[in-house]
Design a protein around this nucleic acid. Sequence first.
DNA 1: TACTATCGCGCG
DNA 2: AAAGCGCGCGATAGTA
Length: 578
Amino acid sequence: MDATDAATWIVLGRAGDHVVTIALDEDAQEIARATLDPAELTDWVAARETSAAPRWAWSDANAWYPQLLDAGVRVARCHDLRLCHAILRDAASVPEAPTLRAATDWDHASLVDAEPAAVPTLFDFADTTRRHPGPPLGIDEALSEFERQRAAVAASTDPARLRLLLAAESAGALIGVELRAAGLPWDAAAHNALLSDTLGPRPVAGATPARMEEVAADVRRALGDPAASLDSQQKLLRSLHRVGILVESTGKWELAEQQHPVIEPLLEYKRLARLYTANGWTWLDEWVRDGRFRPTYVPAGVVTGRWASSGGGALQLPRQLRQAVRADPGWTLVVADVAQLEPRVLAAMASDTRLADAARGRDLYAGVVDSGAVGTRAEAKIALLGAMYGATTGDSGRLLPRLRSTFPRAMALVDEAARIGDDGGIVSTWLGRTSPPPSVEWRAVQSQASDVDASGADEARARRSAKERGRFTRNFVVQGTAAEWALAWLADLRGRLAAMPPVAESAGAPRSGPVFATRPHLALFLHDEVIIHTPLALAEQVAEAAREAAASASRLLFGGFPIDFPLDLRIAETADKG
DNA sequence: TACTATCGCGCG
DNA sequence: AAAGCGCGCGATAGTA
């Protein structure tokens, strides 16, 4: 028995060439302290994870967790100081956060190097060549930041929700690292086949694929210009004007409205060129290794709390390429996505029982039609999107009064968020993530317009930027709360997957890494969708876990409010949506 | 040569 | 179909 076995928290940090661990009890009082050689750390963490299951408080999951996972050590919970700092620093529910805001070292974004060192060394602290600054790694800085954050939460007007948010955010930090470590199973041969079927055989370096050349020739023929350039927007626009196609841009939506023999081959050329440049052979060579696509996830990389990604465009995977997402032999994929997440979240936030009634069951838009607010499903969709995005014109803008009378509470919530943003105020999500304050430039524009000698143009500009900010805050509360729901869903699901029995390691290299090669694991997260890679025998159990996790997330955020979050669930060898 | 800005298009 | 939100990335064009 070791004093650290009673730890609620264990803070990790560097001190010189060593790692110091500080065990804290539930009141954050120190109960033990250890100084470790970096080489001992993985075993030490593994042992405490088993005996104490503490919440590991560290500067940044990106700095500490990849090495642990590589060594086969998974941790259940952490407190990610960097991500939590960013939330607390701006949170409106923390009335005074001056000491947090003064700790600007913690504002450094932390980026993971896309290419890890050729020979990664375990906690090689001699490596001072980090390409990105990142947050402080020292134990003293970690402990004092941890204390500042505890004080901030305690001073908050809603500490319970804030704690929930910090826990969910920290779970996201773990999951982001785990997703990269496990990777998305990717069948390079299937991807290659798609490319050669669509573009022709892989061209030699510098050459254009054969199929693109053929289509380009059709375009040039239709333009009557054998030398026309198709890759330069400016030149292409001039070519189009020369043959009487008076478009303002070369965007495909505008082109599609035109009647001319060049349009069809040109759109086809654009489609092929997009595949070739964004997800062609070069992408495959760069991003897929050993049957895995391993992007870098950036939890909370978006102001609203949504995740971003860097490298490989993980969050923009074209539908076309989903057929290359393919389970290992003996394994399968469980693909789960939430239908109409954002309007459901809005119904719950606003306690709008009429919208929640419409949301009952699979298709919220059909429910909105049944409510009588609009006539067709298509109208329901654009009306609701317009409500959440702030549409003012077009079909969407015209339908909003109908929504207002049918769902007054939901509409009042987003309208009020817009009004506050328009006025230069800040808004918060359900759990308390707060929008950034308006920029100094934005304020300058507003105050310039209220000058006595302001011109009409000044006023118009101020008005426009106020409306823009209103649309941002309108959407912030919904998008941000949806991101919170998704985090809670992921975190709960992650726990359920980890509790499932491991399977025997299959022959061949454990391409998902030592932790995930023997058990179901998350393989992709895309705002309102997850893909789980699982041994075949556990697929049904995993699907059920995804469903249960969704119900659990809904209770965690919205308590007993009767709102459904139904999942579309598929069990399949590929992630193809068909 | 190295950078930034803009467009266009993929995703939710 | 692309109005109204949030992103990343590649190509071209312009600037230093």
